[in-house]
């Protein structure tokens, strides 16, 4: 479904991605692990066109590297950024409505369905989204991306800075999304969540993929964990 080949990216003069290669199949949940600053977020951003990519990114067999990000989104890629980026002056409901790409062709997810799933969002449906708590913002931004009917959703650090109970809820939401047939590329710091819900895990170091395998294989590989993950 997604095939990334020899992907390079730069911030100014610094070379952040140094030939990233990986693939993701339909229906898969894949986690991208690694320490801070190794280029996990940049990988996702360059797939989405926010950071100019060099190399090949193919989605459903078609090259998407170099397209503007709205065109990439329209191909069926959804992106939930690390800083959540809810629209603070719009209401919760309006945030969800803006997730719909084409109001004349609504997708399979409905605003009401999202609000039913999350009573906290429903209670604030007509308040400005800026007043939500961190966890609620994370729920909202994931629901908003779902409204656009993505086939592959890239979620960057959804649990960062959130309380354990909410982390658990977010893990459940990601599983629900996966069970609904959406493929997921998850960037995560917390090993436990990633190991629980992923079919495969990728470990990044120095702008490259340094390990690829199942969660079990990663668990068994002390050397990789020690070198690239543990602090």
């Amino acid at each position: 479904m997604l095939e990334v080949k020899d992907l390079h990216a730069y911030y100014g003069k610094s070379h952040i991605l140094n030939g990233v290669n990986f693939h993701l199949e339909e229906g898969e949940v894949v986690s991208l692990l690694g320490r801070n600053g190794v280029g996990r977020s940049t990988t996702v951003k360059s797939i989405m066109g926010e950071v100019p990519p060099q190399g090949s990114i193919r989605f459903r067999g078609k090259e998407i590297a170099g397209l503007p990000s709205h065109a990439i989104a329209r191909r069926g890629l959804g992106y939930v950024p690390e800083d959540r980026d809810i629209f603070p002056t719009l209401t919760v409901r309006q945030n969800l409505e803006l997730g719909i790409k084409n109001p004349r062709k609504p997708g399979k997810w409905k605003v009401q369905q999202m609000l039913d799933m999350f009573p906290n969002l429903a209670r604030r449906a007509d308040s400005p989204a800026g007043v939500l708590s961190g966890g609620e913002k994370q729920m909202l931004t994931m629901c908003r991306t779902l409204m656009g009917d993505p086939e592959l959703m890239m979620i960057d650090e959804p649990t960062e800075g959130l309380a354990p109970l909410i982390v658990k809820q977010i893990g459940e939401l990601i599983s629900d999304i996966a069970n609904a047939g959406v493929s997921i590329l998850l960037v995560e710091q917390k090993l436990s969540i990633a190991m629980d819900i992923s079919h495969r895990v990728l470990v990044m170091g120095h702008g490259q993929i340094v390990f690829e395998g199942t969660p079990e294989e990663l668990r068994a590989d002390d050397a990789i964990r020690k070198e690239w993950l543990e602090v």
Binding site: M48, E50, P68, S69, H70, A73, R74, G78, Y79, P81, D85, I86, F87, P88, T89, L90, Q94, E97, L98, G99, K101, R144, T145, G148
Partner: peptide
């Protein structure tokens, strides 16, 4: 709505396919 969203988070409006 899109304009007001883009006032603060232009890139995100693009990521949603607009």
């Amino acid at each position: 709505m899109m304009i007001r969203a883009a006032l603060t988070h232009g890139a995100m409006v693009g990521h949603l396919g607009h």
